[in-house]
Design a protein around this nucleic acid. Structure first.
Lengths: 138, 138
DNA sequence: TTGCTACAGAGAATGATTCTCATTAAAGAA
DNA sequence: TTCTTTAATGAGAATCATTCTCTGTAGCAA
């Protein structure tokens, strides 16, 4: 993703555009997995040795609040970040601790339909996701 | 739950029966919500001032490994424990941070059926659960 | 270009959890 | 019952992720 696009995304969220924010946003967008704050920090520190870990945490939090990225907690209790905003489900491998995305339109529709027919009393659902636990084979 | 029943459950799992284990197991079983280790510690310390927090953590972990209880991580990254072993889904309230159980046989069957028809490549599913996020109304 | 204000950097502080190690108690053997 | 072995416990130190505090810096609007 190029600088101007990142700049627009950040500025349009009403945030000041800074070098740190650009670098951190790019790192999240380019990440294959679901990086932790530490992962982001490691991925940028060679090119940007002056950016501090605290800034990474604060910036990620700012992005989450601005709706630019998502966060969730993994099985170990560590925060994971993700630029994909469409609600999506995760596959946790017990063996390797990897987290992969799972997306299936049919499943999403099925769940949406199910919860429209089975409302939860006094509760307004914002988001439904699936957690799949198991292990890789072979 | 009475002492003898707890004693049987613990002993039959191949674990030594100790006073601490009994007290901690009873606390989890009797808990309404999804207590943290700290909650368990608080709930037992008046009656058992000599039990240490470290023991609560270790014992809960022992129970999880023995399959007596379940654990999961909440949105803040804190471990939650639960005596109900049937895989079940959770409702997270953004407003109150409460976690409630959600169980629905029809939904479980539907998901089981879905994933039998849509295998994930090179992955063996142990458990599927739903995460429902939203907020209480009224 | 200047000034206001939000942002960043450094490191201390916090909170949950794990670890270490000496002491104690459970459970089977004698 | 008493002894012995071994695992469990208690106390507190250590760790790890995350947040906070405070001072210096840099966007950005005027």
């Amino acid at each position: 993703m190029n600088i101007n696009k990142v700049k627009n995304i950040i500025s349009e969220s009403g945030l000041k555009f800074t070098h740190q924010r650009m670098v951190i946003y790019k790192s999240i967008v380019d990440a294959e997995n679901h990086p932790t704050a530490e992962h982001v920090f490691d991925s940028i520190k060679t090119q940007n040795p002056s950016i501090s870990l605290g800034t990474v945490y604060k910036t990620l939090d700012t992005f989450v609040n601005a709706g630019l990225i998502q966060k969730f907690v993994d099985n170990k209790g560590v925060m994971r970040f993700d630029a994909i905003l469409e609600a999506h489900s995760h596959i946790y491998c017990r063996k390797t601790n990897e987290i992969s995305d799972y997306q299936n339109k049919a499943l999403e529709l099925m769940l949406k339909d199910f919860f429209e027919k089975h409302k939860i009393e006094d509760f307004e659902i914002d988001e439904i996701s699936i957690v799949i636990k198991g292990q890789k084979v072979q």
